[in-house]
Design a protein around this nucleic acid. Structure first.
Length: 107
DNA sequence: GGTTTGACCCTAA
DNA sequence: ATTAGGGCCAAAC
């Protein structure tokens, strides 16, 4: 079980219609301060991956993607497709964490 | 091996 | 309330 695998497992647990933060995912794998690693791992995720990476946003509910193979617009699109409201303001996409943050994972 | 880097987070001015 | 800076851990170079 390498670090990547742990991240994958955690992200896969996020239910459809909910969102989680990088820090939250990091906490799930046992390293609450390793939020950056989560992002790093997801950055090298294959486009055809079945992992719901789009359900992961930063602690403010913002989509942090800027210059990657996948445009942030694509992530917003996927979220909306799952019933999550995505608001566009200041050139970035935002999700209402109070409404959609995955709380069950905290157990 | 040591150094750099990053889809982040938190505290302080 | 907004902006700036430092800290974090793990993977790449």
């Amino acid at each position: 079980m390498n670090g990547y695998q742990k991240v994958y497992e955690a992200v896969k647990r996020i239910p459809k219609g909910n969102a989680a933060t990088y820090g939250q995912v990091a906490a799930l794998i046992g390293s609450p301060r390793a939020a950056r690693q989560v992002g790093f791992v997801l950055s090298k995720l294959p486009a055809d991956s079945k992992i719901p990476w789009h359900r992961v946003v930063n602690s403010r509910g913002m989509i942090s993607i800027e210059n990657l193979s996948v445009p942030k617009q694509e992530q917003a699109r996927r979220l909306q497709k799952e019933g999550i409201e995505v608001e566009f303001r200041n050139g970035n996409y935002w999700v209402d964490l109070d409404k959609y943050q995955w709380r069950a994972g905290i157990v």
